[in-house]
């Protein structure tokens, strides 16, 4: 007999019931202690799942703070602008190079 009158068989089932509250075997079917334990775990899991449906209202400033953060540290538009500038600079360099080569060929 284990602590609080719980038998070893009950203790083993208790560990099974933590992982699967619907676990059933001959012992659980005949043991009121284990059936009560199963009910506790089923109740616990049901109430935990119900917490998932609850929504706690966010602080009212979140949207404003995020929006301000986008303007300050926005990467998306900056990256896009940077890419366009790089493409334009590469294009200008290519044109300048071509003009220089053409002039050199004229003078030669």
């Amino acid at each position: 007999m284990a602590r609080n009158g719980m038998t070893l068989a009950c203790s083993v089932r208790s560990h099974r019931l933590v992982g699967n509250a619907d676990f059933q075997d001959a012992h659980v079917a005949s043991c009121l202690r284990c059936q009560a334990e199963a009910v506790r775990y089923r109740t616990l899991l049901r109430h935990l799942a119900e917490l998932g449906a609850e929504t706690v209202e966010a602080p009212p400033a979140i949207v404003a703070l995020v929006t301000a953060g986008l303007s300050e540290g926005s990467d998306v538009p900056k990256k896009a602008a940077g890419r366009e500038a790089a493409v334009a600079a590469a294009g200008l360099a290519a044109v300048a190079g071509a003009v220089a080569l053409w002039r050199r060929s004229l003078s030669a």
């Binding site: 929504t55 966010a58 602080p59 979140i62 949207v63 995020v66 929006t67």
Partner: peptide
């Protein structure tokens, strides 16, 4: 953000 703020929070 306005739409998803409460669930994220």
């Amino acid at each position: 953000v306005r739409h998803h703020q409460h669930e994220v929070f």
